[in-house]
Each structure stands twice: as structure tokens, then as C-alpha cells.
Amino acid sequence: MVVSADRMALTIELQQLWKSYDGKPALQGLFFDARPGEIVGLIGPNGAGKTTTLKILVGLLRPDYGLIRVKGNDVLADPISYKADVGYMPEAPTLPEYLTPNEFLGYVGRIRNLPRDRIADRTRELLAILDLAPKADETIASLSKGMKAKVAFAAAILHEPSILVLDEPLIGIDPAGQHLLKERLAAMARAGATVLVSTHQLDTAERLCGRVAIVNHGRNVATGDLAALRAQAHTGAEGSLEDVFLRLTQEAVAPAIEPPRPRGWFRRG
């Protein structure tokens, strides 16, 4: 199959993503893409399909139908090797609370196949940057919610991934910590990483993301930079992302449509 040069430049490409839980559709033909150096925001109401999309992208869920390419590679055909390039921070991450941040990051480094001296350096560096150094040898269970989120963030970027997938990364983190994380994300994007962020914080998405995909009921409502979204929502040049979001997601929802019939044994498009 020939892939065009334009498509080759994409780090993430999702097409016609369908997923249902017990017959209830969660994703109905969702699509979007992202390029190197880009921070893409994924926003939508509760139950819109954001977390499902991100879990599919990082391999924790399998779609009923659709195409997922990461750096040009078909993720459903090779669901393992692409993960070496991906960092993931789940929404409300569960962590092994019996470990200390030091031990946890060491463990993550090992399963990320980092050289052992590199693990120690990165752990020290990240714990210092994220103001976690004083808590490095206390169990995660004793940390505050925000500190736990920082530990999860450190684990996501420990191996310096070129693709970072973050599901509501700023929940529970104090303003200074949020600022720190946003700066870090911007720096990673400047260095060429692709960052995909799901968030309900529309002002953050507006300032942080180059492009935003608005999803509702598992479908794309609109995708583009703020100017394109304003045009689509007819909010005028001064319209905020919140105005755009409210306008586009409150419009009548199209009736549910039948998913494409899976082809072949592997239920892929």
C-alpha cells in the first residue's frame, strides 16, 4: 500500500474509529491526526469518547473498526513496537502505591528498556523538576493527589517519548504545578514531540494547543486551529474556545448510524 508523503509526515493518524461497549456506541467513525511538534487538544463533553480514543491509541483497547497509524505504522498490525515511542498518562492514574517515586520510576525505566544509568539520571532530573525530590523515598500512598499526578507525568515522559498521550493531565495539580507541566509540554513540542491532550480545561486548551478536535457522541464535531473553529461555529473573531465548544456541542446531534461491517477475521477496515 502506497502512503503519500503528506501522510508520512503524520505521527498520529486515526481514521474511521468505531468502538462500542455492550452494543452502546462510544466512537462512531472518529478521526483526527497530529504532526511532529504539534500539541493537539481533544475536547468534548463527558462520555464523548475522548478516553476511549486515547486508550485505543496507546493499545489498552482495540477498536471494533478503523485504522490507526503511528509514524506510518499500522498499530493494529503491529501493536507492540510503536509503544516504545509513546508516553501515556491516564485520567486518574492508578499507581503502585506501595512503591516510592524513586522505586516506581526505576521500575518504569526498566520496563521501558532504558539503560540503568540513564534511569537513575532521568529519575533524579524529573523528580527535581517536578518538585518531588523531597518525597522521593516516601511511598506513593503518602503523597497528595497532585503529587501522584506529577509522578504519573514523570513516568510518562521518563523515556523521552516522541509521542505523548495525556488524558486530563492537570486534574488535581496546583496552579504552579500546572504551569510547570504546561511549560514542559510546550518544550517537548518545540523539540519535535507530538503531544495529544484530552482536557476539560478549555482556556488551557486554547492557550496550549495548536489544534483542537472537538468530539461529541463519539464523532468529530470540528477540528482545526482556533480561527477555523470560530469560523465553523460562527462565533466571530473574539469568540473563545468555550464559546465555540458550547455552540458546537449544543447543536442537535445527528442520529446514530450503523457502523461499517467488519471485513475479514480481524474486524478491521
Binding site: V58, L60, Y82, K83, V86, Y88, T94, I111
Partner: peptide, 9 residues
């Protein structure tokens, strides 16, 4: 906590 292992290669 297995998400930590399953999102690696």
C-alpha cells in the same frame, strides 16, 4: 496498575 506494563513495548 497493569496499564504501566501494557503501554510499554
Amino acid at each position: 496498575n497493569l496499564w504501566i506494563v501494557l503501554t510499554t513495548a
